[in-house]
Computed example of a mutant assay.
Amino acid sequence: MSIPQKLGTVLLATLIASPTFAEDSFNSHVHGNAALQLAFRNQELVIYLRGAAVDLLGSEHQPFSAEASSRDQALERAMRSPAYWIELPAAADCTLSQVHLGKHHVISGRGVAPEVMDSTADSVVAEHLDLNFTYSFLCANPQRFDSAKIKLFEHFPTLETVQVKIAGEKQTRQQLTPADTVLRMP
């Protein structure tokens, strides 16, 4: 594992394990709702986005048809560039260092299953799918990161809310909607 990967993993684990955020249902599979976490540590920023595939891809399950597979590939290409869905402040001078795209099958009544990329098993085919995206950045001026415009609602019209958690010097939560798309730092 590279140093940026290790750092991103540590930052994300710190955010998720934080007492401020531990008690909620971040891993819940909820249609119309995406979860966004930002973790800052010095000049490092990790952004984690998770949402139901039905909202991000238009389908509940792993793609089986050529058309569904094509939509899946198009989404993957678009999401590799965080600028597609989030506008970071130019003054913060953040440079993308790593991207990880993942799929998690949600097992009815048991929450999120371990990451599964091969969905040929009958038990996996019938379950719902969440998509997650992790981005690691190095920011030259992190103190100038005061807000970010979230463009998820433009691309994914079935999204109703984005639940945001921010951890750094201060921790906070926000709820974004199509009418309020600006993430504000505490």
Rank of each mutant, 00 (worst) to 15 (best):
P89R: 05
N132M: 05
C94T: 07
D118C: 04
Y84H: 11
S69R: 14
D130T: 05
L88P: 01
M117D: 14
W85V: 05
T120Y: 09
V124R: 06
L129M: 15
L88I: 07
R80D: 09
S108L: 03
V124S: 10
A121S: 13
E115L: 05
L131W: 02
S119D: 15
G111H: 02
M79E: 04
T95N: 14
R110E: 09
S81W: 07
G102S: 14
A91W: 04
H100S: 11
A83S: 14
A91V: 09
S70W: 00
H128C: 00
D93V: 08
V116S: 14
V124M: 08
H105W: 01
G111M: 02
A68K: 11
S81E: 13
E87W: 00
P89N: 06
V112F: 08
T95W: 12
A68V: 00
D55H: 04
S70F: 06
P63S: 04
S123F: 13
R71D: 09
I107W: 04
L56T: 01
T95A: 15
F64Y: 15
L57Q: 05
V106Y: 09
R71H: 10
W85E: 00
L57D: 01
R80Q: 12
E60Q: 09
V99G: 04
A74C: 08
M117R: 12
V116L: 15
Y135H: 05
A68N: 10
S69V: 02
F64G: 00
G102H: 10
E76L: 10
P63H: 06
H61I: 08
S70T: 08
S136N: 10
A66K: 15
G58L: 13
H100E: 14
E127G: 04
A68Y: 03
D118S: 10
T120R: 15
F64N: 06
D122S: 11
L88Q: 03
R110H: 09
G111V: 01
P63T: 04
E115Y: 07
S123I: 05
R80H: 12
E67F: 09
F137Y: 13
A91H: 01
H100N: 14
V124T: 11
T95M: 13
V125M: 15
R77I: 12
